[in-house]
Design a protein around this nucleic acid. Structure first.
Length: 213
DNA sequence: ACATTAATTGTGT
DNA sequence: ACACAATTAATGT
């Protein structure tokens, strides 16, 4: 499939034929296996990714090396942090690791300026993804500040399953605990509670969502 | 198929 | 939070 066709399918908001032609010319497509680093803190940002398949986890790191989960990116998403980085021509503020085998289209940052001027659908797309991400991060801040861990966990599960549009989440309790900055035991116990209530079904490396609010 | 080992999950303090 | 038990999955024989 050509880049043009992929974009049409996954990013229908981008409409100008001219824009699609330019994307065909300047963008590259790239795949990376689960577990690899998409970008490291301090790296120079050379392109903005449009995710086709797979997912990426985006984190910040504090001075003691603790990771703070910012958000997950899935098919149809783009990375808002990359945006702000390349606008200001600075190095990456974030680390992004590939969670699920990734296919992405890379937009060279030198295209950004021009396309923002020339193509309204590109402008809308950027604005829209920026505001979606901003909203989501506000919610995350709210939940850290105001919600108890059981609610946070539930929200986390609900959000992740909605994002990748599946009722089955793969991964360990430890990984969830890391994302939520709590201990593995707490996650295990809360999950057990949810299972007793019939809201999830648990097995090793797998959580099946039955019924979350 | 069975035993061994490593990783994940469960539980009491 | 820690220690340890129990369970499950992966691997070798």
């Amino acid at each position: 499939m050509t880049i043009k066709e992929i974009v049409k399918q996954k990013f229908p908001i981008l409409v100008e034929p001219e824009l699609l032609n330019e994307m065909e010319k300047y963008c590259t497509s790239r795949t990376m296996p689960a577990g690899s680093n998409f970008i490291e803190i301090g790296d120079e940002v050379v392109a903005m990714p449009l995710l086709i398949e797979g997912s990426i986890k985006v984190v910040r790191e504090d001075k003691d090396g603790n990771e703070l989960l910012l958000y997950y990116l899935n098919g149809g998403d783009t990375c808002a942090s990359t945006l702000s980085c390349c606008m200001n021509k600075v190095s990456s503020e974030i680390r992004a690791t590939v969670i699920d085998d990734l296919t992405a289209i890379l937009v060279p940052i030198r295209c950004m300026d021009e396309w923002l001027k020339k193509y309204s659908s590109w402008r809308n797309f950027i604005m829209q993804s920026y505001s979606i991400r901003f909203e989501e991060m506000l919610q995350t801040i709210d939940s850290i500040a105001f919600m108890k861990m059981d609610e946070r966990l539930e929200k986390y599960l609900a959000q992740r399953s909605a994002e990748i549009n599946t009722t089955i989440l793969l991964g360990t309790h430890q990984e969830i605990a890391d994302d939520l900055h709590t201990s593995r035991e707490v996650v295990s116990r809360l999950l057990k509670q949810l299972e007793k209530l019939g809201r999830v079904r648990l097995s090793r490396n797998k959580i099946e969502i039955i019924n979350l609010m």
